[in-house]
């Protein structure tokens, strides 16, 4: 029990102290505060590197377990092949330009990622076809704004009217921006209260679910 309690209390205390220190150092330009900030940031990067090990280990373990159970075998085998081959190439020949690792990166990984990214264009088309319906007056206004924006962001907008880009920019700079600012303020306040709850220890989900 004492161990469990310490297990919760210690991270909570560390979180509180570092939360407070990082908050305070923001307002200081004293060399001590600057050095402290720099040191904490260095450690932050080091800790992050260790967290990757957790990901690598569980990815490998999960896939091997699933393959042995026969679930999604082809996909998992391809995943594991990439998982093993890329670090091997990096270890043997390094990761600078013109190495096998970079060849794989440029000719396998990058095109595959671009392909998935490109799906977005197709999904925008299908979502627009299905979703943009003038069901009500606000929906019709939204639809009209979207069409204006689409026209203005292509170089054919100018053919219809010289003023089209100006109208689109106005929509972007005023009604759209006002709505986004309101949402951003709400998000900012939500972030602030959540962060404070974490720092003072009443929000403990990040410790694994103890409310």
């Amino acid at each position: 029990m004492v161990g469990v309690l310490m297990g919760r209390r210690l991270p909570l205390a560390v979180c509180f102290v570092f939360g407070l220190v990082m908050f305070l150092q923001y307002f200081s330009e004293h060399p001590v505060a600057i050095n402290l900030n720099q040191t904490i940031l260095d450690y932050w990067q080091i800790v992050f590197a260790f967290t990757l090990i957790v990901g690598i280990f569980t990815y490998f373990k999960n896939n091997v377990t699933q393959i042995s159970r026969g679930s999604d075998r082809p996909f998992r085998l391809v995943g594991l092949a990439g998982f093993v081959s890329m670090p091997l190439l990096a270890l043997i020949w390094g990761i600078k330009a013109d190495t096998p690792f970079m060849w794989m990166f440029e000719n396998v990984q990058a095109p595959m990622q671009s392909t998935v990214f490109a799906l977005l264009a197709f999904f925008v088309a299908s979502a627009s076809f299905r979703g943009f319906r003038a069901r009500s007056l606000p929906a019709a206004v939204l639809l009209l704004s979207a069409l204006l924006m689409l026209l203005s962001r292509s170089n054919i907008g100018g053919f219809f009217s010289e003023g089209l880009p100006e109208i689109a920019n106005w929509i972007r700079d005023y009604p759209s921006m006002a709505a986004r600012r309101a949402i951003l303020i709400g998000i900012g306040l939500g972030s602030l209260t959540t962060s404070l709850r974490v720092i003072i220890g009443i929000e403990r989900t990040w410790l694994g679910g103890d409310k």
Partner: peptide, 11 residues
């Protein structure tokens, strides 16, 4: 994210 995974597993 591996850290999100670890926390989510606990949650």
């Amino acid at each position: 994210d591996p850290v999100i995974m670890a926390v989510a597993q606990e949650v």
